[in-house]
Design a protein around this nucleic acid. Structure first.
Length: 330
DNA sequence: CATCAGGGCCCTG
DNA sequence: CAGGGCCCTGAT
């Protein structure tokens, strides 16, 4: 009988080192670290001004805590890195620099606001979320797992699949008084039979999960190198992975690799939401959506859509958005 | 009880 | 290039 990793007590990350991150202003802490449109996951936790996240990095299980210590125009983040043994010199810096990339802290968005600030849709949104960044605090491999459990599933089912995977293959970590799940390595899954994955109710996705982790375990893919690839080449690489189609590629191009103009496709769910946001209609064709955002926002089109999208989901937290509710299938 | 669609993707003809 | 099948779940 397989002993699940999470049946063990959590790893205590009792060592902590503190450093600072300095985002390029303007910077909006909460809208960057927390994306209300994303499904909840036990690898992170957000409270206003604070964010906890597990990170599998440098072959370690780490806990990171980000705290807002600045203002929009003079931003500063206190970063606490928790580990089970003291980190070697330089390791905290490597974590800081990786987070800098994953939270997109070094991008200068001033021309984005300058060029699009007069847009009637974006103007009010900028007023609320100026300084918001794209964020994917997962590695490419980890994000591919998320993209896979999103496929053809309602929110509840995606959450269930993700938590089943964390329970079976992840590691519980404990730091700063919180317990979170931490991702497994692709190597750990590479040895697992598809049938075992299917038992976690991931269905046909078992094959994709299995083949994707092998692509990483065998080092066919190099995330760091992919960060510098031209968009066309990158897209082709991603599409070549089994179980990765246009919808997953779209999320990854934008969220993981920060291609702000990536709107090659619009999947059905987003299509309905953008139709409302852009045209006030129930269903506008994807071609019309792509044409409109390209004409209107050019090289910033996906970042602009991200602002509109998260804005409506933030709004939903405090008030009812009657047209949005039926679109969110729990 | 049966049927269906859901925040896709692969494979076939 | 269109369309069927795929896993599972909750809604009808």
């Amino acid at each position: 009988m397989r002993r699940t990793t999470t049946s063990r007590p959590p790893i205590a990350l009792d060592h902590c080192q503190v450093t600072r991150l300095h985002p390029v202003p303007p910077f909006h802490f909460d809208a960057t670290v927390h994306k209300p449109s994303h499904f909840p996951s036990s690898d992170n936790h957000h409270e206003p001004g604070k964010y906890w996240q597990s990170v599998r990095f440098l072959d370690r299980h780490l806990g990171v805590k980000l705290e807002n210590r600045g203002q929009t125009d003079s931003p500063e983040i206190k970063l606490s890195v928790y580990s089970n043994e003291p980190l070697r010199s330089g390791e905290v810096d490597r974590v800081a620099s990786e987070l800098d990339y994953r939270f997109d802290l070094h991008t200068d968005l001033s021309s984005f606001y300058a060029e699009l600030g007069d847009d009637p849709l974006l103007g009010p949104v900028f007023a609320r979320w100026r300084g918001m960044r794209v964020k994917a605090c997962q590695s490419l491999y980890e994000f591919l797992v998320i993209a896979t459990v999103l496929q053809n599933a309602t929110v509840r089912r995606s959450v269930q699949m993700m938590e089943n995977l964390f329970h079976q293959y992840g590691t519980r970590i404990r730091f700063d008084g919180r317990e979170l799940a931490c991702f497994w390595d692709p190597e750990a899954l590479a040895a697992v039979e598809e049938a075992e994955l299917r038992a976690l109710k991931v269905g046909y996705r078992a094959r994709a999960l299995s083949l994707i982790c092998r692509a990483f375990a065998s080092h066919e893919l190099d995330e760091m190198q992919m960060r510098t690839m031209p968009a066309d080449e990158l897209r082709k690489r991603l599409l070549g992975l089994y179980g990765v189609g246009p919808a997953s590629v779209w999320y990854i191009m934008f969220e993981v690799f920060h291609h702000y103009d990536e709107v090659e496709t619009v999947s059905p769910w987003e299509q309905k939401i953008y139709s409302r946001l852009l045209f006030g209609q129930e269903s506008v064709s994807r071609e019309d959506i792509v044409a409109e955002v390209t004409r209107r926002w050019g090289r910033w089109r996906m970042l602009a859509l991200h602002y509109l999208f998260e804005d409506i989901f933030w709004k939903r937290k405090t008030q009812t958005v009657d047209w949005l509710e039926p679109l969110i299938r729990l």
